[in-house]
Design a protein around this nucleic acid. Structure first.
Lengths: 210, 210
DNA sequence: TAGATTGTTAATCGATTAACAATC
DNA sequence: TAGATTGTTAATCGATTAACAATC
């Protein structure tokens, strides 16, 4: 099957399956079912099976799925069965918090460069990283083989940094700036904006219960 | 129209419209069109108009939308035309980064309490906040009229904190813990997990270009 | 008036799910 | 064998979009 034919919404659920499988594995389970995965994610068992069926047959009738095997398969599909190198742009509070966030390394995302534009920060040590000058971005990305960038700069600088990243050959950007970045179609962009999340919840809150 | 009948996917787009309108307003524009909004978000103009039509008629034929007016209307619909009080649980690096993140206050989300369970942190001043004991959660939430909680504690404590929040009457939770929280149906939950975002992007990256 | 753009309908498209044969 | 659960088909459901009358 042509991979381009797989709906994006299916791709977005695969990481959720992986996360659920990790939880089950951490609890010592070795086998699970589409029912159990679905229950934990609030979706139907049929949907879990249908999603997986785009990529192959991973289960056994009557038994379910061997957790370790399904994890391996999903990691291969998502291409997270290898290490990806990240560059972090911006070493403010958020940047520092991200540097201490161990989940990146645990999931195969290696922080391979840390950059800032502030002269007072450049050259400083932050954890095991030396802060590099953002002006050297293209060389750093090339020399260190970086594939994914994490933007943690002030909002006003985010678009400029994003443009520079694309120019330097980056094709996937995770941005913490609360603005809509305008970038070429072929660039993968994910934005993390807690305001959007909050605004999506308040709609459903009962104002009378304030 | 029964508000319950409005698709959730529509509700999730309204904050994006608000964010786009803010961008346009910041650039000094006073009027826009469904075309312009859609272009900036990568969706069709028809979808923008259809989404808005669930709630009323906000534009003028031939002219488009008065930006300020549409912002007001969307804020009312999303119930962000008022101030919501947040409690932040967890004052690690991430918590501190969130405390300096001005976008919350700018969008009407007031950080009204900051709590931690670490005795070394309780009583300390962080910015303009005194760190409170998480054991006093129910009283703090009641006394300060807090409606939404932000979880920024270590992963292993997240579920326990979430349970305590629900018990204390919180009905909306924004969690930065990279796990699936298991909570009652009626609780609004949004999770921010950069690993999910990254794993969704690597699928689309061309491995040959590493 | 001519041009532009809205709001809405109906058609289309795509995602979800019910049902079930296959089989462990 | 009986029970459980997969993988898949076809039906259903719901979201998107093309088209266009209305009108500024």
């Amino acid at each position: 099957m042509n991979p381009l034919a797989i709906p994006e919404i299916v791709i977005r659920r695969l990481p959720l399956y992986l996360r659920t499988l990790k939880l089950l594995a951490d609890r010592g389970l070795t086998v699970t079912s589409s029912q159990e995965i679905g229950d934990r994610l609030g979706i139907t068992a049929t949907q879990v099976r249908k999603d997986l069926s785009y990529f192959g047959e991973f289960g056994k009738q009557g038994t379910g799925y061997e957790i370790k095997y399904l994890q391996e398969q999903l990691r291969q599909i998502l291409q997270v069965d290898r290490t990806w190198k990240l560059a972090l742009i911006g070493v403010g509070d958020l940047g520092r918090a991200l540097l201490r966030f161990t989940a990146f390394e645990e999931s195969g995302f290696e922080m391979a460069a840390v950059l800032d534009r502030d002269g007072a920060k450049i050259g400083r040590q932050v954890g095991r990283h030396t802060v590099l000058d953002v002006a050297t971005l293209p060389a750093v990305i090339r020399e260190r083989g970086i594939q994914v960038a994490v933007i943690a700069v002030p909002t006003r600088d985010a678009q400029e940094i994003a443009d520079a990243l694309v120019k330097a050959g980056i094709r996937a950007i995770l941005s913490y700036a609360p603005i809509q970045l305008s970038l070429p179609q072929h660039i993968q962009v994910q934005q993390i904006d807690p305001i959007l999340s909050l605004q999506g919840m308040t709609y459903y809150l009962d104002a009378s219960q304030l």
